[in-house]
């Protein structure tokens, strides 16, 4: 079990800036009387396992990791809770784009075509867009071919590289459509990966939510309450906190909510990614 006094958070090192972010949080919590430490994992799978094994008080989880935590907890008679998330984790959408000059006008036109997606384990660039296509009667690998851009497995698509590769595959003609998160469409245009006006948005998924701080219910409640209280008290008006919020990409912390993960639950089952108990089913998943 984790140290009684020090709050221990797990996070995934998907980028070098992660160290800067959590070191900054460590200073912030220490200044407010909460001893804080963090453990970095190279992948979400081990983080979830260690969390449920009682080695962490909380885990900064991707949506996929959240669902695995829910299932693994349930399998052992526990329950997890999403205690907070970023304002920017709420109401995201993904888009399926094609080249502006392409003959593809509707999703139905994707039949027998190639759709570029992100990493195998990316909710936003792979799982949710493929789920959206299923809802539109297009079954992956049956009605169309899926081209994975499987960068940095285990990081659940946090790294932007897979989406950028998918966008490149679309532009160089290796794919007929590409799946990316909404904000990356404008971002890829601005950075030049997608020439301005060269793409058309074919479809947009329903809004979904992204990361959250996950805790196991009933464990270290006071410590977790203190963590949550200090977290929600962070304000963008505070010049010492602001650089951390900017790095982590939020303006305010919000209460956690879980309705935004429903589509992903369905996607996981359709893809047979995890089973009901959170066991990994996909034999091609490397992390």
């Amino acid at each position: 079990m984790a140290d009684r006094e020090t709050f221990v958070l797990g996070a995934v090192a998907y980028d070098p800036k992660v160290v800067t972010i959590w070191e900054g949080f460590k200073t912030y919590f220490a200044r407010h009387g909460l001893p804080f430490d963090f453990v970095l994992y190279s992948n979400y799978e081990r983080q979830v396992e260690e969390h449920l094994a009682g080695r962490l008080h909380a885990a900064w989880n991707s949506p996929l990791a959240w669902i695995r935590a829910v299932r693994m907890a349930r399998a052992t008679g526990k329950e997890v809770e999403a205690i907070a998330m970023r304002d920017s984790d709420q109401d995201l959408t993904s888009v399926i784009i094609t080249r502006a000059a392409s003959r593809i006008q509707t999703l139905a036109d994707l039949k027998n075509k190639i759709v570029a997606v992100g990493a195998l384990d990316s909710p936003q660039a792979t799982m949710l867009p493929l789920h959206h296509l299923r809802l539109n009667d297009l079954t992956p690998e049956v009605d169309f071919a899926v081209q994975y851009n499987d960068l940095l497995g285990g990081k659940h698509g946090d790294h932007i590289g897979g989406e950028r590769e998918a966008a490149r595959a679309l532009m160089n003609g290796k794919a007929d459509a590409a799946c990316i998160i909404d904000a990356n469409h404008l971002f890829f245009v601005k950075e030049g990966t997608l020439p301005a006006g060269a793409t058309r948005i074919l479809a947009q998924t329903a809004p979904f939510d992204h990361c959250n701080f996950t805790v196991v219910k009933g464990a270290s409640e006071d410590l977790i309450a203190r963590f949550r209280e200090l977290l929600l008290a962070m304000t963008y008006e505070d010049a010492e906190v602001r650089p951390l919020l900017d790095l982590e990409g939020l303006k305010a912390w919000r209460e956690g909510r879980i309705e935004g993960y429903r589509a992903l639950e369905a996607a996981i089952d359709e893809m047979k990614f995890y089973d009901e108990d959170g066991k990994i089913l996909n034999p091609n998943y490397r992390y």
Binding site: D87, S88, V95, D182, H185, L186, F187, K251
Partner: peptide, 16 residues
């Protein structure tokens, strides 16, 4: 603009 709604969503999220 065709993509206005999509871009607005991302922009507003980033701006708070």
């Amino acid at each position: 603009a065709a993509e206005l709604a999509v871009h607005l969503r991302g922009w507003c999220r980033a701006q708070g």
